[in-house]
Design a protein around this nucleic acid. Structure first.
Length: 188
DNA sequence: AACCTCATCAACCGCAAGGGA
DNA sequence: ATCCCTTGCGGTTGATGAGGT
């Protein structure tokens, strides 16, 4: 499989999107629809690579995004789907209208993992941790992730937490309302 | 009040798959 | 059948800021 550079790195912006960039992207997609990400940035007058545009659109700008707290039902559905599908975030997202794979993946890693650990369940196998710990002793079981998870990633609810706003950051904002990605950073 | 710790999440990277030439 | 290009996905990173000390 040939791999080609996704973009001319020298002439593209990275990091947080500006309001103007968002608006350009939205306007372009409204006018021309999604697709052809490779050529989109140029056509839309964006100094971004297509990959970045796609990600921004899918994860943040799409008008049908739900954005907001995951409900208890969604939590359980995610857990169930994860048990069935594993880390197939895009497939899981497909069953949760208005949610993106990135959002679900983040949510899994920050909330649900811990939730399962608190229940004494291994987030990878969805089996009771003690069962796995027992199995770990047997040579057949090659160091189960759970064991590490239980020890390295702090188990159950540590000392804090409460979402920035208690309602999930983006929550408050409507998808269309530009939220200053105040991480005004240039990464890497 | 100042400093420290760490949860959160937007955005990046690399790889794989799919499809057209 | 093979090559090349584009898109999509999963994993990871790191700035930010809330909450703890």
């Amino acid at each position: 499989m040939g791999r080609s550079p996704c973009c001319e790195k020298a002439h593209t912006n990275k990091g947080a999107w500006t309001k103007e960039e968002d608006q350009r992207l939205i306007a372009y997609i409204k006018a021309h629809g999604e697709g052809c990400w490779r050529s989109l940035p140029k056509a839309a007058g964006l100094l971004r690579c297509g990959k970045s545009c796609r990600l921004r659109w899918i994860n943040y700008l799409r008008p049908d995004l739900k954005r907001g707290n995951f409900t208890e039902e969604e939590d359980e559905l995610i857990i169930k789907l994860h048990e069935l599908l594993g880390n197939k975030w895009s497939l899981i997202a497909g069953r949760l209208p208005g949610r993106t794979d990135n959002e679900i993946k983040n949510y899994w890693n920050t909330h649900i993992k811990r939730k399962l650990l608190a229940r004494g369940m291994d987030p990878h196998t969805h089996r009771p941790l003690n069962a796995i710990a027992g199995a770990a002793i047997s040579p057949a079981q090659p160091s189960p992730p759970a064991a590490t998870a239980a020890t390295t990633s702090r188990p159950a609810p540590p000392r804090r937490r409460h979402r920035r706003d208690g309602t999930s950051a983006s929550t408050s904002t409507s998808p269309s309302a530009w939220r200053p990605t105040s991480r005004a950073t240039t990464r890497r």
